[in-house]
Design a protein around this nucleic acid. Structure first.
Lengths: 178, 178
DNA sequence: CGGAACATGTAACCTGTTACATGATTTC
DNA sequence: GAAATCATGTAACAGGTTACATGTTCCG
């Protein structure tokens, strides 16, 4: 039950149409909560039906025509409630770790190339996050919003740092004589 | 499409019944791929139907009676194929980061207690992993299987370390004068 | 007027979650 | 023989993925 709240957050930051939301989910928000346009349209329908958002009066209703949404007070309340509510951390689910565990049984043939590929991808993602940090969070600004958005970005940076370091060490472990 | 491969891996490590698998998914395998008993029974049915595993001849068929499975050659082949195949890393999906982003819009009321709770949970998980490392991976042993299982455990340790450090820093950022 | 890009949707399917159902075995 | 535990399952549903369908606007 997180996608509706991701959409409410995005719409509070800026009222948008479904396609605009899709684009934002491909960038900033999607860095920690991805969604396809099909999911987004389905969820926008539900949120509107439930009275948490509404289409802007200017929005046309016909298929193929842009339709912008904004958050209603009930939607903001629901988002505040959800944000403050206690939630347990979800257990990790990672395919690469599972594949390494499988490789301990069926052999490592072919997996190392993919580890190297992942390392390249994570390095690229890390560079992208660091670029965003340089651009959007220069030292000095200090509103609470800035700080919150910055710690979220820091999580992304630290996670990508973890993956690059772990992949590097793991490749040494598999390649090297040990 | 990872649960069947998680089950194949577990069954290759040791033939088991559904309930035994469920218990193993609550411990070691579940640390990076969790599953409920309902998922496991459904998947065991499919794997058997598809000829990748079979019930041991000794296993009874009646409801309520233990039924053990082992992996067939076709199952081992499929696992090896899947392990070697290239797969893209899945984008991150993390509720806590989403909540912090939402908190930048609707306020941080109530979220800090939950951050502290998460910190406690992650510290406990880290301690558990470190205990497993001490117990199962003393310095010296050096088969490829050992190394593979160890790097997987290291990933768990490093990830929990990341969370404890990031949560600590984030709480300072929110509590402190900044 | 034709094609690209914009824009909104439907449908089918798979995975994961929650609640419940049923029978067998052990223990007191 | 009642209760706890072991053990296997069914059913309904929610969320995510993939493939496809349809209409509009812009631009050459």
């Amino acid at each position: 039950m997180s996608l509706p709240h991701a959409i409410l957050t995005a719409l509070l930051e800026k009222p948008s149409s479904g396609l605009e939301l899709t684009r934002r989910f491909d960038r900033s928000i999607g860095y920690f909560w991805s969604a396809t346009h099909q999911q987004i349209y389905r969820e926008l329908g539900r949120l509107e039906r439930d009275g948490l958002i509404r289409a802007l009066p200017s929005a046309r209703t016909a298929r193929g025509q842009k339709k912008e949404y904004e958050v209603l007070p009930a939607g903001r309340d629901e988002l505040a409630r959800w944000t403050a509510a206690s939630q347990d951390p979800k257990p990790l689910r990672d395919t690469l770790l599972l594949r390494l565990r499988a490789a301990a049984v069926v052999g490592t043939d072919g997996i190392q190339d993919d580890l190297r590929r992942h390392l390249t991808l994570h390095k690229a993602q890390l560079a992208e996050y660091e670029e965003i940090e340089r651009r959007d969070f220069p030292p000095g600004r200090d509103t609470m919003e800035d700080r919150l958005r910055h710690v979220v970005l820091r999580a992304g940076i630290d996670l990508e740092t973890f993956w690059t370091q772990w992949l590097t060490r793991t490749l040494e472990e598999l390649d090297g004589a040990g």
